[in-house]
């Protein structure tokens, strides 16, 4: 899926390579985690992320995304393989690696004993800022992340969206080489989610390298320069969102709701519709992938009714990352 640095220099860039010329910031080689009890959470992961990229790990819960982020951020000890961040071997020199990473975990890990302002101030001090510099940086970040009015509040008084903003502010305060975000918008209301996307897009414009894990397709699609689709600890595909969607060969996805034996309907449509590339039953509907969508809707209705099925609903969409995921795994990302 991904390539090594030597490959990258010898061959023309492939979609799975970081942008040409960008120095690599993350590199994993054969990174593997087997938990006690024999569960392989991450299986020989090879990944290269270039500076300035937003790189996404997309997959269902339990796919190994959080474990991967954990191994890159000194929290989960790899069973084998290596992980480098900013040129530092994370497991040979964890203290040095911690200087180069900013982490926003899935749970709220803000310091409950401190106010909003002090959470930032002491983070700056942990990372070697003088009193004056830490104060100045704190004020700047409060302003930039729209938290100035809440500065004196205890962190428990923050809403979910604000707490998440504060965690991002804290994580970028020491100018990390990579910002890791584990499911950055899980549990946020739609408005806070969009605000978080804007923040991440702004950081991206400033050149911040970001690795995020998510199981929201829209999030991966909207934010990521490149992403790896992961399931059962393995990378199934790695490309730009556009490249991944193209790779399915599907240019249109038709979702058919109907009464009767849906598996039979799926088989029928797959056989009869011109340009059909795949047909699956998911969530009580038939998902049909088609290349060359001209006139496909009337054809679907016609074929279905000729086969004795009553079509109750019909929709047509561009392929999404979900289409890609279904195509790769045969299952829905939300399952």
């Amino acid at each position: 899926m991904s390539t090594t640095a030597s490959d990258a220099s010898e061959h023309a860039p492939r979609p799975s390579d970081p942008p040409p010329g960008a120095p690599e910031v993350i590199r994993t080689v054969g990174l593997t985690k087997v938990y006690p009890g024999g569960v392989t959470a991450v299986d020989r992961l090879d990944l290269v992320v270039g500076r300035g990229e937003i790189f996404g790990l997309l997959g269902p819960n339990g796919a190994g995304k959080t474990t991967t982020a954990g191994m890159l951020t000194t929290r989960v000890v790899p069973t084998s393989g290596s992980a480098h961040v900013g040129g530092v071997d994370v497991w040979a020199h964890p203290a040095r690696a911690k200087e180069l990473i900013g982490v926003v975990p899935q749970t709220n890990t803000l310091d409950r004993a401190l106010t909003v302002r002090d959470n930032l101030y002491f983070h700056g001090r942990f990372f070697g800022m003088s009193r004056a510099v830490a104060r100045r940086e704190t004020d700047d970040l409060l302003e930039r992340f729209k938290l100035t009015e809440r500065a004196a509040m205890p962190v428990l008084a923050l809403s979910g969206g604000m707490a998440q903003r504060l965690m991002v502010a804290r994580a970028v305060m020491h100018r990390p080489s990579v910002l890791f975000l584990d499911e950055p918008t899980a549990g946020l209301d739609p408005q806070s989610r969009i605000a978080m996307w804007e923040i991440l897009a702004d950081l991206h414009v400033d050149g911040q390298t970001i690795l995020l894990t998510t199981h929201y397709m829209e999030e991966a699609d909207q934010l990521c320069d490149r992403l790896a689709i992961i399931d059962h600890g393995r990378v199934l595909a790695l490309d730009t969102p556009e490249g991944l969607k193209r790779s399915t060969g599907i240019d249109t996805s038709v979702v058919v709701s109907a009464e009767g034996d849906l598996a039979a309907l799926a088989a029928l449509l797959d056989r009869e519709i011109d340009g059909s590339t795949s047909a699956r039953v998911l969530d009580g509907t038939v998902h049909l992938g088609v290349t060359g969508a001209e006139g496909v809707l009337p054809a679907v209705v016609q074929v279905a009714e000729r086969g004795g099925f009553r079509v109750t609903d019909l929709s047509i969409t561009e392929p999404t990352l979900e289409t890609v995921f279904i195509d790769l795994t045969g299952k829905d990302l939300r399952e």
Partner: peptide
């Protein structure tokens, strides 16, 4: 995969300094 950690990585921003 034997990047020496004692030297600052060339791609790390100067601001993520050694603490």
């Amino acid at each position: 995969m034997t990047a020496p950690a004692t030297t600052a990585p060339p791609d790390a921003p100067a601001t993520a300094r050694h603490v």
